[in-house]
Every structure is written in C-alpha cells, then in structure tokens.
Amino acid sequence: MASIKLKKLEEYLHGVDSFEKPKIKLEQYITPPHIASCVLYNIQTLYGDIEGKYVGDLGCGSGMLSIGSFLLGAGMTTGFEIDGDALNTFQYNVTEMELPGIDCVLCDVLALPKCGKWGNAFDTIVTNPPFGTKNNCGIDMLFVQTGISMASGAVYSFHKSSTRDYIRKKVKDWHVKGNVVAELKYNIDTSYSFHKSKSVDINVDFWRFDVTEKDI
C-alpha cells in the first residue's frame, strides 16, 4: 500500500527543480521525475521499505529521491551530497514544497563510513550514483558499499545494465542479496552540451539489495 497515488507523486516530482548548472566531473543529471516516481512507488508497494522508515539518499543532488520518499510517507529523510550548489537547490525545493521531514548534509558520501556513527542508522538507503564514466570507474559500487554499511534493511540503486554480472558477483562477496527490480531506459538528452546527438538512450537497471544478512 502507498499513502499517495502514483500519478499524484509524479505530478509533485515534476515540480522539483534540477541542477542549475550540471557539473560534468560529478556526472550530475537529475533523476527523471517519471522514473523516480515509478521506482519509489514500487519500493513502497512491493517491499514496504519507505512508509514510516528512516530513509537516506546518497548523492541526493537537488532532492528528487529524498522528496519522493518523503511524499510516500518516510518518517524522515536525510540526503548527502558533495556539491553545495545542488544542496541550495535541494533546500529551495524542500522549502518551496513546504515539506517538513527532509534534511541534508554537505559531505563526501564516500567518507561517511569513516565517520563511525552512520552505520545502520537508516532502514532504507536510496541512491542514484554517478555511473563512473568520467575517469571515476567503480564509483557507483562505492556508493552501494557505503549504502550497505548505513542501512539495516535495504539499499536501492541505479546501474548501467552492462555491469549486471559484475554487481551480482560483487554483492555476493558481501553476503547481500541483490535483484534487478526494473529495467529502464534513461534518456539523458540536454543535460550536457557535449552530448552531440540530440538524445542518448542508455539501459539502466534498478537494483534492490537486501542487506539484512550483510557482512561488510
């Protein structure tokens, strides 16, 4: 069950402002509202991992997944982001939409495990990580690894479909059960000027990682 209709959720998420000037190095692009609303709605209706839960959002950007989680009934959401400009937009979105239970921290996501206190702090972690195509190969799995250390229930993440076998093997080492919940087509069209063709479709998997028996 979900506390809000899918159509309504998508309508709200269309009101979330994006990055003003996306930064190429950080591989910034907004999670499309249609995709964000569909996947979050499914996290709640299939697995009940949002309503009444403490949800963390790694690399939250301007807040699409944080805001969507809160609208679906999360008890509280905390977003983590390395880019201050993106977080200013995040705060603008949260204030503009008058949402109470959403917080954010300006920090390096990959340094969070070193901080000691965030381990198992959350029930659920959601992340749309950088895919690691800009000289930062493997960063998406570092986000997942960080998420696994911070969640006691489940981690949800987006990855290029081409990395499916690698991810399957990797999470097995951590005693984490992973399954692809949805196969998506991402259309990253006008985010960056160097994308010469008008739009680029990439195949993306939406993963659920069950971390209840993790060894990490």
Binding site: D103, K114, C115, G116, K117, W118
Partner: peptide, 22 residues
C-alpha cells in the same frame, strides 16, 4: 539541520581524531 541528523554527525574522518563525537 534537524537534531536527529546531529545525533549521527562526527568529525572522526579528520586525521588523528579518535571519536569526534558529540
């Protein structure tokens, strides 16, 4: 910043810091 978030924040990532909390 909500105080629930404050409950988890530390400075332990600084080199040489042992606990960094509260």
């Amino acid at each position: 910043m909500r105080l629930s978030t404050y409950n988890f924040l530390t400075s332990k990532a600084i080199k040489g810091v042992k606990v960094g909390f509260p």
